[in-house]
Design a binder for these strands. Structure first.
Lengths: 274, 274
DNA sequence: CAAAATACGTAACATAAGATACAGCGCTCC
DNA sequence: GGAGCGCTGTATCTTATGTTACGTATTTTG
């Protein structure tokens, strides 16, 4: 069975004329980058003419050059998204646990790889600002994450509200929201219509939106001031929110650190209330 | 120092207008693939117009779009040649993020190291059994985990209840619990008195308790049939529940797999109800 | 060795891509 | 509340990219 284009090439390279074989070898040499360049560049690199390149991709079964490039990009996308697929990890094979754990570890690493300190610091700073109120809300499966974050933030600063219950209830809270306020939304596939509508309305009121979503980006991204894209793919029937959860914990920690002075006093006050 | 385009973007994303920020976020979300596509595709993915994409790359300092793409390709080439450099974003090394991430990764590995496949399989089997009802409850910070798990389990099987609200409310639910039932409790330091009392009473009624706790074990452990001890130590003012969260996700996956036949039908039925 | 078939490159073409000019809109700041 | 500025999208244009036609060179085969 042939799964990658590289395999397809090495399968047919024997039956190729000299010029096309040079094209094939050039492509394999630094796969798949040469294939992502223009026909002219590809042909120059291989030392053949443009039509030869086109005949080469035609022989591989592609209708035209763009189609060939799309296929390469898709392959690259799959490769970049699951670093787990790098060779095989011996020893971790076996039980049903390891794949899940391995995938989650990869998701965490990948998620944080695309997240710089600066981004997190900016978001934490915005959350630590005490100009306005902070609202948190989540979707069907992610609402617990919103609750988790709200539970912590509410301890170190005032005016933190988790929007729960029926849609109509939190929709009415819109009236309390303005441009000084922050709305933290958790939304992963399948994205919830009601949340998108809510986000749009909040955005129009000038509320700054911080969005936790998956790598495919919820439509809410277009209204969001900050977007955190977490990897969610795991070998399970469900998507994993673990990466978003860890980002949330990281942010909670960062905000706490920023509010240290004010926050510490508040925590002491809370303790004495028990 | 700025070495990668991703860093360059996150460095300047703060100083960008809304439209260009969307472009930046879309690119970062699945970096660098979106940037290798055409301007039209990029703009469609980001939900902005083509000129905005071009202004975006211009702001990054590139003369034109092809030059931007070449830079991305060069970066990708370097990355593909040395897979070692794929580990952590050098920009995030040494910052405030890494310690948190590293600690969490360690916690996950440690937690699962003390957790055998058999244990998880046993617990999953018990949860998949449909003899009785399943109740879930958590403490101050861990209740969201209980909710998260309940949200998933309730979809694939009937009689799953999350115990929420005031103590008196769920205490009254004890009357519905018997020896055929399962109670999943999340409790980490500082252990909650009310939860311990509740667990004890449930235990006396013959309810099987599955406990998620930290490595120091909540006092509920003495009543529990199964105990999952997760590592919680992170460089933060708060304990981390990430390890327990991942175990919960793993269990959800395992239970789903066991109920595949029955669960699939139920999920279809639920879908048709929308 | 000759003739046919195949491969390859040059050059012209059509198309789709990136770039630009301009007008409308929203936002900020007096 | 009004004036100014800056951002964004539509429409147009230009470039360069992929594609095709055709003639020459090369190899293969009888």
């Amino acid at each position: 069975m042939i799964s990658s284009i590289a395999e397809l090439i090495s399968d047919r390279i024997g039956a190729m004329p000299a010029g096309e074989r040079r094209a094939a070898q050039t492509l394999i040499a630094n796969y798949p980058l040469t294939g992502l360049k223009t026909v002219a560049e590809f042909s120059a690199a291989a030392g053949v003419s443009s039509p030869t390149i086109l005949r080469f991709v035609a022989r591989l079964g592609f209708q035209n050059y763009p189609e060939f490039q799309s296929a390469l990009q898709d392959e690259l996308a799959a490769q970049l998204q699951s670093p787990a697929s790098r060779t095989l990890n011996p020893g971790s094979a076996g039980g049903a646990v390891s794949p899940m754990l391995e995938a989650t570890l990869d998701n965490l690493r990948e998620t944080f790889r695309h997240l710089t300190d600066k981004q997190l610091a900016d978001i934490a700073a915005r959350l630590a600002e005490r100009r306005g109120k902070t609202f948190l809300i989540g979707g069907r499966f992610t609402d617990p994450l919103a609750r988790y974050m709200a539970a912590h933030l509410a301890i170190i600063q005032p005016d933190v509200y988790h929007l729960a219950g029926q849609e109509s209830i939190w929709r009415d809270r819109l009236i309390d929201m303005g441009k000084r306020d922050v709305l933290v939304i958790f939304d992963i596939r399948r994205y919830q219509e009601s949340l998108v509508r809510f986000a749009e309305k909040a955005h129009h009121r000038g509320v700054q939106i911080i969005l936790f979503t998956d790598q495919w980006l919820s439509p809410i991204a277009r209204f969001a001031r900050h977007v955190i894209a977490g990897r969610t793919a795991v070998p399970s029937a469900w998507d994993s929110s673990a990466a978003l959860f860890v980002v949330a914990e990281t942010l909670i920690g960062a905000v706490t650190r920023q509010l240290e002075a004010a926050g510490a006093k508040r925590i002491r006050d809370l303790e004495s209330l028990r």
